[in-house]
Simulated assay, not measured.
Amino acid sequence: MNAFQVPIVDISPYTGAGDQADRRATAEAVDKACRTVGFIQIVGHRIPSDAIEGLTSAMDDFFSRPLGEKKKSTVAGVNRGYSAPKTEQLSLSLGVESATRMNDFFEAFNIGQGVDAYPDLDLPAAHYADNVWPDGVPGFPEKTQAWFAEAGRVARTLTSIFADALDLPPRYFDRFTDHSLDVLRMNNYALPPGEVDLDGGLTGMGEHTDYGIVTVLWADRVAGLQVLADDGSWHDVMPEPGALLVNLGDLTARWTNEVWKSTLHRVKPPVVNGRIERRRSAAYFHDGNVDALISTLPGMVEPGTTELYPPVTVADHISAKLAGSRSLVANANAEREALRVINSVG
């Protein structure tokens, strides 16, 4: 019986001591996971425990505030600040209308890299916007930015592993990521009783693929995350103690002509005794330079296959995705992913 599993890979040969043979073994394990699942549990990332504790305490301090106070950090038109419950629909990033039509009930807070991080470049402020910090939450900027730095380090370690796994020159992806459009999205899945109807379907976060190169995810060990297998069935995934979840985004699937997978996933929150059990996560999206052109890598169109995607800039791809999830304008350029949602079971 072939049970669905997200493989565990130790990346310590790339974050600490490790010889060439150790690195080769890690790269091969990553390659296998990217070809078969598109999700990996990574250990050996060397993120200190105080960074994780700082992140979670900052999230708790902010999300425990009254809704009206949290909404003061809402900023229209940029990928920063607070998103209230039921204001987004992730399935529309694929052009798929949610059957519940209630929008996703999670709430989130986003931070990212601003133009001041790259003073020598003329970058669009809409993509590299300044961060918005909530009033009355001591330490929030420092704690979340500390995690942002650690998750960014891990993401860049992963792209180094990707280059080795794909037999590309060392640090091949640096040219696409030296002013990467990176965002940390902190998510909270909890609503007071009476806020939602618990009968029928309930969506914490709708079916979607991630948009960029790679996502580094910290999550509570609480049920909810589900990943779509090749046979169209959904499977529960929970991180092992100390592990981070990593999944590929659309741009990597484009680079590899879907030899590596950008896997569909969703959050279906557990309901216990008529209440939604709280779940937290923090996703670091490593999306690439806004002006980078993404086209199929050499050697990725295998014999008997065709090139699946035309070249696209990071800016155009990310903008179309965000217009779906945030502005509720269905993305018309995600036919392949949309069909997988439509054909999924359950």
Rank of each mutant, 00 (worst) to 15 (best):
A117H: 12
W133K: 06
P85Q: 04
L297Y: 06
T157V: 14
A320E: 10
T252F: 05
P169G: 01
N2W: 09
M59Y: 01
S327K: 11
P239T: 05
D167N: 11
V301P: 07
D199N: 15
Q20T: 15
K321T: 11
S83L: 15
E195W: 06
I342P: 01
H179E: 10
A17D: 14
E28I: 09
A126Y: 06
N333H: 10
Y14D: 03
E207Q: 07
P192W: 09
H45F: 05
L244F: 09
M59Q: 15
G38M: 07
N273R: 15
N103E: 07
L90E: 01
R153I: 02
P310N: 05
D220R: 08
A21Y: 01
T203F: 05
D291S: 12
R46G: 04
A253M: 01
G242T: 02
A332W: 00
P310W: 01
A117F: 08
A163F: 13
A334H: 01
R326S: 01
Y172K: 02
A334K: 05
Y82G: 02
P66D: 07
P269A: 14
P124D: 00
P138Q: 11
T87K: 02
I213H: 12
L228C: 08
K261L: 15
K70E: 04
L181C: 14
A323E: 14
Y82W: 05
A129S: 15
A320Y: 04
L191C: 04
T157M: 07
L158V: 08
Y82M: 03
I8F: 08
M205H: 10
P239S: 08
D287G: 14
R221I: 09
I213K: 09
T252Q: 02
T215E: 06
R278D: 03
G299I: 14
W133A: 03
F162E: 00
V314K: 05
P134R: 04
F140Y: 15
V137A: 11
I294A: 07
Q20S: 11
G114C: 09
A84L: 05
H286D: 10
V6N: 05
P298T: 02
V37P: 01
T305A: 10
S262I: 06
R80K: 11
A84R: 08
S233L: 14
L121H: 10
D116E: 12
D199R: 13
D167K: 14
A323M: 10
I42C: 12
I8V: 15
T203G: 01
G114R: 04
G194M: 00
Q20H: 12
Y309S: 10
K32A: 15
